[in-house]
């Protein structure tokens, strides 16, 4: 499966983002957190929009599944 190595678009705000992501999960049960992650993926997909980009992201994410 082909994997895309993406440019770093997140720094220098990566720590701020990560803290906000953890905060979004605070106080949720584990099933609630997985549900939040699913919603987040769908919202981000809608935000990105372009199907080719989304397919590449899916392929890249899947490529790590067995590592």
């Amino acid at each position: 499966m082909s994997r895309t190595i993406a440019a770093d678009n997140l720094s220098p705000v990566q720590d701020e983002f990560y803290a906000a992501l953890m905060q979004a999960h605070e106080g949720l049960s584990e099933p609630q957190s997985h549900a939040l992650n699913a919603r987040l993926v769908l919202l981000m997909a809608n935000h990105i929009g372009a199907l080719d980009d989304l397919r590449a992201l899916l392929t890249t994410a899947r490529s790590y599944a067995d590592e």
Binding site: I5, A6, A7, D8, N9, L10, S11, Q14, D15, Y18
Partner: peptide, 10 residues
């Protein structure tokens, strides 16, 4: 292998 993820490691 993802540069952005390296910078997340704190």
């Amino acid at each position: 292998d993802q540069p952005f993820a390296r910078r997340l490691l704190n």
